[in-house]
């Protein structure tokens, strides 16, 4: 009886009901959009990658044939090798320079604010703009080469941009220029978060400054290393614009990355299934890095 009255009371006012479901109502569109545009589309892409599609989607299921084919294509192989090389160098340089700048900036530097903004501004630029600038500066003939020769080193030659063995390094140079500031900002935030009294205690114990940094400060930045590694990897795998502008993947396909490979196959060559297979491979690369990371993040958060 009491139960009955309570339910009656619960539903007496349509306004109250609306109020109760409002939060769900409000996020419902986003939820649906997420299901379709993220999860649905990922599944769709995976499905296309297992179909016979060429120019037009064709939903005949052929299993993993396209993946087998993908890994037999030299161009994809080169793209993956480039990603390893480019990604490795990109991450190493960004981390090393970023850490160095952060530590130096943390020494009660006058003008710290101005320097920080200078290091960071490339981040606000599009990779297309960055690519345009570096393409001009690395231009064989008019660019850096001419500058060095005019300064007296007549035999200097710098043709990386058009040299298929070296072109990938020009992409590293431009990408490092653009992203180092970001790593510096993360490290700087990390340094500022370190309890100052720990450093003071070490100084009282007589440790020298470099030793304090090596033994205490840098080890305690582990989470920042971890976080910036994840993000830089993510940036590297997604790299697309910079390659397109700087080298268009060339000479030949010597600077192709998975992202440009995917675009070429899916959008210009009309090999949808292969494009989808390469996209799926990229997705799996990112997941292989992100999922363990998010998992450990969430778990450490849950443990307080």
């Amino acid at each position: 009886m009491a139960e009955l009255m309570r339910t009656a009371e619960r539903s007496y006012n349509p306004f109250t009901i609306l109020e109760r479901v409002m939060p769900k109502l409000v996020v419902a569109p986003s939820f649906v959009a997420m299901l379709i545009f993220i999860y649905g589309f990922i599944l769709w892409t995976v499905y296309i990658s297992m179909s016979k599609s060429t120019f037009l989607p064709n939903y005949d299921f052929v299993g993993l044939v396209q993946y087998v084919r993908l890994w037999k294509i030299d161009r994809w192989y080169v793209a993956c090798k480039n990603l390893l090389l480019y990604g490795g160098l990109f991450i190493a340089f960004c981390t090393a320079i970023g850490l160095l700048l952060a530590i130096f900036l943390d020494q009660k530097i006058r003008l710290e604010g101005a320097l920080r903004s200078i290091y960071l501004y490339p981040l606000s630029l599009s990779f297309v703009v960055t690519g345009t600038a570096w393409r001009w500066m690395l231009n064989p003939g008019l660019g850096l080469e001419r500058l060095v020769r005019e300064m007296g080193w007549q035999s200097f030659s710098f043709d990386w941009l058009v040299n298929s063995d070296m072109a990938i390094y020009t992409i590293v140079i431009a990408a490092v220029w653009q992203s180092t500031g970001f790593v510096m900002a993360m490290f700087l935030a990390g340094l500022r978060g370190i309890d100052n009294s720990i450093i003071k205690a070490a100084q009282v114990d007589g440790a020298s400054l470099p030793r304090i940094y090596l033994k205490i400060v840098i080890p305690s930045l582990r989470p920042v290393f971890f976080g910036s590694f994840i993000i830089l990897t993510h940036i590297a795998i997604k790299s697309f614009d910079l390659v397109v502008v700087l080298t268009r993947g060339g000479p030949g396909y010597s600077t192709d990355l998975p992202a440009t490979f995917m675009y070429a196959y899916a959008f210009t060559r009309g090999r949808l299934a292969l494009g989808a297979a390469s996209a799926t491979m990229m997705f799996m690369m990112v997941m292989a890095i992100i999922v363990p990371y998010l998992y450990s993040e969430l778990r450490s958060k849950a443990n307080g």
């Binding site: 009491a2 009255m5 309570r6 009371e9 619960r10 109250t16 109020e19």
Partner: peptide, 14 residues
């Protein structure tokens, strides 16, 4: 269980 304020069961009242 149940909470009453005055004579009113308030369980389902916002």
């Amino acid at each position: 269980g149940e909470i009453r304020i005055g004579d009113r069961v308030v369980n389902a009242i916002p």
